[in-house]
C-alpha cells in the first residue's frame, strides 16, 4: 500500500486549517475517477480532517503514513465523480 502509484502530488506543509482541506479538495476535482492523489501535510488537525473530507466527498483514503515529526503522507483514490 505504501508504494502505491500516485498520479498527482500536493505539498501542504506549513499550511494551517482550512488550507490543506481546500487544496486537497481542489486537487481531487482535477482527477479522473480511479486516479490517486498524494498529499503531504504538517498540520496535526489534518489527520482527522482528511478523513472527514474523503467521507463527505465520497472518496477513499488509501494511505496515512507518518513520515517524521507531525508530517504525514496521505494517498487518496478518487472514487466519486465531481458533484454538481
Amino acid at each position: 500500500m505504501l508504494d502505491i502509484e500516485v498520479n498527482v502530488k500536493l505539498d501542504c506543509r506549513g499550511m494551517s486549517c482550512p488550507m490543506p482541506v481546500f487544496k486537497t479538495s481542489k486537487a481531487l476535482k482535477n482527477l479522473k475517477v480511479g486516479e490517486t492523489l498524494e498529499v503531504i501535510s504538517s498540520d496535526p488537525g489534518f489527520v482527522l480532517d482528511i478523513q472527514a473530507l474523503v467521507r463527505q466527498t465520497q472518496n477513499k483514503l488509501l494511505v496515512t503514513q507518518e513520515m517524521n515529526d507531525h508530517v504525514f503522507r496521505y494517498v487518496i483514490e478518487k472514487t466519486q465523480q465531481n458533484l454538481g
Binding site: 486549517c17 482550512p18 481546500f22 479538495s25 480532517d49
Partner: peptide, 12 residues
C-alpha cells in the same frame, strides 16, 4: 470564512 470555505471544499 474558515467554516464556509471548509464546507465548500466538502461540496456542501
Amino acid at each position: 470564512f474558515i467554516l464556509a470555505s471548509a464546507a465548500g471544499a466538502m461540496d456542501w
